[in-house]
Design a protein around this nucleic acid. Structure first.
Length: 484
RNA sequence: GGCCCCAUGGUCAAGCGGUUAAGACGGCGCCCUCUCACGGCGCAAUCAGGGGUUCGAGUCCCCUUGGGGUCACCA
């Protein structure tokens, strides 16, 4: 049988990386076996409706590359794929359960339930579970608002198997009569979820481990209807770590206090979609070998449920940064340039410099947003401190710098303007004067760049600036030194 | 609090009865070097504690401790 998984987010306008990882695993579970990945929108909560929120879901999945085979926007044989459009479907199922004696009408008011909870009760007290036929008929005739509740077994226990966690057993006495159909006629998630998964032919239910203890309720529903229970794959949660004022650390479910947790937030900070996907794939799953950098296609091939771990994992921004850098390093020159182009344009960099920039920039950034800082010296010459010319390790001092710049000017005026020629000329000069290469390289680079740290060395900086601008800056540097 | 789940370095983790307990991030050191990176080499750092089972336990069982989840007319 072909595997069918589903991603069923509710449109909140925000895609948490935890949700995205769930979507990713659902996608991988299906695609590893050449199965079908379905998108279903769970919008049964009318009070939480957010305008444009479904677009965030579509955009995220598209950018992340998790392309669904069926969904609200592309259709499929099991539609509609939006719960609010399936509304008429749920009530008959709920009523069928009532007829079977597996569910019942409940007329308790919200006020009564609130009081119940305030008095310390946990769950529902099953107040309406045994109303007489007559009472029910009367209440219904009076038009009293009602919900439909699931009639759970009261004793014994329920066991099911999860592919990650193994057998899970929960005593029935700990499971209450949950609401299936709300007073507004909408199904609860707990109910819609089961109906939809079954009617959509979902074979593997992949979700966060927070559902582990309520799954027996769903299983009771499946068996009440006489349906097959799907294969369960529960995922460990993604956590965040904060350091408290007293130096201790707190680990809790990843949230905004830990940093950016929304997919789009991460994108805006300069993380690549493929790097985010790569990193979150590794949070809670490990391949059978030691590979760490994956493309989505490689993940599809390598993914194996056996590699999913049971314990929660902490989101590590440092490692995400490293994964991002690795993806950048693996880019072709064309790909790198495409990402860097906006920054190049900002500094009016001509196309003939792209190859050089690819070479010197690629190993020096972990995110493209750092390009501004790396390229900054090209835009204008900073009013740098004269001490920049002093560098112990390079044996460069104010005095040597002055002499070097003086000699460098005529040399650079006549050398062929390419990397090798410039480097050779400077090295030859050093050799002839029996000094270290750095004694001349250092001051020339500093004078040209005006900053201590540059991507690339002396020759690269000169090439990027061009002969004219380079010489202009070196003369400025020389004057600075002479003024002392 | 009841119930469910989890437990290998700071973090992600391999391990599925016999290993010097992998690898990666981060940290530190060295090398390369005209700066910063990249790259190379190396170092420090883990089986929560206690009982069993076994010739042998990080691996199996129990307890303790710790962590997480869940107990809505949210999903």
């Amino acid at each position: 049988m072909k595997i069918r998984t589903r991603f069923a987010p509710s449109p909140t306008g925000f895609m948490h990386v935890g949700n995205l990882r769930t979507a990713l695993y659902e996608y991988l579970v299906a695609k590893h076996e050449d199965g079908t990945f379905v998108l279903r929108i769970e919008d049964t909560d009318q009070e939480r409706y957010v305008e444009g929120a479904t677009d965030v879901i579509y955009d995220t999945l598209r950018i992340a590359g998790l392309i669904h085979d069926e969904g609200p926007d592309i259709g499929g044989d099991y539609g509609p794929y939006v719960q609010s459009e399936r509304l008429s479907l749920y009530k008959p199922y709920a009523e069928e359960l009532v007829k079977k004696g597996c569910a019942y009408y409940c007329f308790c008011t919200k006020e009564r339930l609130e009081q119940l909870h305030e008095s310390g009760a946990v769950g529902y007290d099953r107040h309406c579970r045994n109303l007489s036929e007559q009472e029910i008929a009367d209440n219904l005739a009076k038009g009293m608002p009602y919900v439909i509740r699931q009639k759970m077994p009261v004793e014994g226990e329920s066991t099911y198997n999860d592919l990650v966690y193994g057998d899970i057993t929960v005593p029935y006495e700990d499971l209450d009569d949950q609401i299936l159909l709300k007073a507004d006629g909408f199904p609860t998630y707990n109910f819609a979820n089961v109906i939809d998964d079954h009617t959509m032919g979902i074979t593997h239910v992949v979700r966060g481990s927070e559902y582990l203890s309520s799954t027996p309720k769903y299983n009771a529903l499946y068996s009440d209807f006489g349906w097959d229970i799907p294969t369960y794959i529960h995922l460990p949660l993604i956590m965040g770590k904060t350091v408290n004022e007293d130096g201790t650390e707190t680990i809790s479910k990843l949230s905004k206090r830990h940093g950016s947790t929304g997919f789009m937030d991460l994108i805006n900070e300069g993380f690549l979609p493929e790097a985010i996907i790569n990193y979150i794939a590794l949070l809670g799953w490990a391949p059978s070998d030691n590979q760490e950098i994956f493309t989505l296609d490689e993940l599809i091939k390598a993914f194996d449920i056996h590699g999913i771990s049971k314990s929660p994992s902490v989101f590590d921004y440092d490692k995400l940064e490293w994964v991002n850098a690795e993806h950048i390093k693996r880019m072709t020159a064309e790909e790198f340039t495409a990402h860097a182009k906006p920054y190049y344009d900002k500094y009016n960099i001509s196309e003939d410099k792209y190859i050089l920039l690819d070479e010197i920039l690629k190993p020096r950034i972990t995110r493209f947003t750092q390009l501004d800082e790396k390229l900054g010296f090209l835009g204008s010459l900073a009013d740098y401190a004269i001490e920049l010319f002093e560098h112990k390790k390079s044996k460069s001092t104010i005095e040597t710098s002055k002499a070097m710049l003086e000699d460098a000017i005529p040399l650079l005026e006549n050398v062929d303007w390419d990397r090798d020629s410039i480097t050779d000329a400077l090295k030859k000069y050093a050799e002839e004067h029996e000094i270290k290469n750095s004694v001349i390289m250092w001051p020339v680079r500093i004078a040209a760049a005006g900053v201590a740290v540059t991507p690339g060395g002396c020759a690269e900086v000169l090439i990027l600036l061009g002969r004219e601008e380079s010489l202009r800056r070196i003369r400025i540097g020389l004057n600075k030194l002479k003024e002392l």
